[in-house]
Design a protein around this nucleic acid. Structure first.
Lengths: 235, 235
DNA sequence: ACCTGAACACCGTTCAAGT
DNA sequence: ACCTGAACACCGTTCAAGT
């Protein structure tokens, strides 16, 4: 780092203590939005509340993001960029597994991320980078383009390391729902790992991920193609 | 049906032609909300627009639903109640498969249903009925309560017959995303079956569902338990 | 060039009042 | 008992104006 660069940084840091003196930029807006959403929840994140946090008029934000939708796209980009790069030297199955669990690690720090990612209509570029990289891992492992296509669909939003939880929070009455009660008691996992409401825990996620990856591997070994989808389930 | 009951019905039907004369009830509110959301989209469904459609002041709705959240719960209940009952005489795997595809048939008529179902914090009772019934099918098929628990988690929101689509709508640039381009061309399915934006098509859904069900069957045949999860993927 | 203030067209929901 | 109208505390976003 050159002397002038260091000075500029110090200058900015000094200005940051004086509210409103550091000019806004896109990155500052997006990072502040991520922090604010982490703190107060995505429902309480508004253009107005974000502007207030930044000590700026609401309309100042529109110089850096065209709309709230673009703000949400940008927030997704920030957290997806935190996902670790692929680990080298692993076979495709382990490589995908580790990558997805790394995505889980990065995204589940932000309880709002699952919902916001799934609500994107246009995937931000870093999202496509991640998907492109995952696809590359399957292809490098020898899976056909055909199988890889369907395997990526089957993986679905689980590629981000989360699944929206579908089980009810309160215990329902046993008379009407005997089967739910019957299976509810098994496998009591730690509630702490469920980040925010509506997220799975680690054991259930890995179980589902492994069922899928094992299935993909079996289809690959069988030479599965979409025009000749032979498939059996004997042990 | 007694004479007086018939007369009462005729009376109501006659009144229905005069807007605003039939007293509102919860069912009329919920059904109107479902129809309106089908027509204008869930984002344009507001308490005010629904009230206007019903020819009533916005606050009249609050006699029948406590809040907009409760309205959404009720709308989910309406569409989930349309799912066919389980088919008798099938083994557990076929029974689950048919039931889930029937759920798909019912829910995908309402493009907003996936998003709204996944956003429920408290599952409506008919949602628990459906889950209880699915669990019962696994248990009746001989799966342990242990395995069934994890299998239900792994099935996740796919039990409703849909998965949120994760692929981008516009074709991205080939230079930056070569692998996406490579697999994009395979298996061009009909776009018509993708109900609204963001929903999978039939082939991809069945592929993923079968990978999961085949995996569940294999674990069941192997005598899998959560404390002794032996699992291999040889063909 | 970058930010502001007022205004517009919406929300869900409260409250007190009408019939 | 059931519905209404006005009002409150919010939204995202436009526009014209400020420096």
């Amino acid at each position: 780092m050159s002397r002038s660069e260091r000075d500029t940084q110090h200058h900015n840091v000094a200005q940051a203590a004086i509210p409103g003196r550091v000019p806004l930029n896109r990155d500052r807006v997006l990072r502040a939005a991520v922090v604010l959403a982490d703190e107060v929840g995505i429902d309480s994140l508004s253009m107005r509340s974000l502007a207030q946090r930044l000590g700026v008029a609401p309309m100042a934000l529109y110089k850096h993001v065209a709309s709230k939708e673009e703000l949400l796209d940008g927030m997704v980009s920030v957290v997806v960029a935190e996902i670790d790069p692929p680990m080298p030297g692993l076979d495709w199955k382990r490589a995908v597994r580790e990558r997805v669990l790394s995505a889980r690690h990065a995204l589940l720090r932000h309880p709002w991320a699952p919902h916001v990612i799934e609500s994107r209509t246009q995937a931000p570029l870093v999202v496509l980078d991640y998907m492109n990289s995952l696809i590359g891992t399957f292809l490098a492992g020898g899976l056909s383009a055909d199988l890889t296509h369907h395997v990526m669909h089957a993986l679905g939003s689980r590629m981000w390391g989360f699944t929206q939880e579908v089980f009810p929070t309160p215990q329902p009455p046993a008379e009407r729902f005997p089967h739910i009660i019957e299976i509810a008691s098994v496998g009591e996992h730690d509630d702490k790992s469920a980040v925010g409401r509506g997220c799975d825990d680690q054991f259930e996620f890995e179980f589902a991920l492994d069922v899928l990856l094992d299935g993909f591997e079996r289809l690959h070994n069988q030479g599965w193609t979409s025009t000749n989808p032979v498939r059996t389930a004997s042990p």
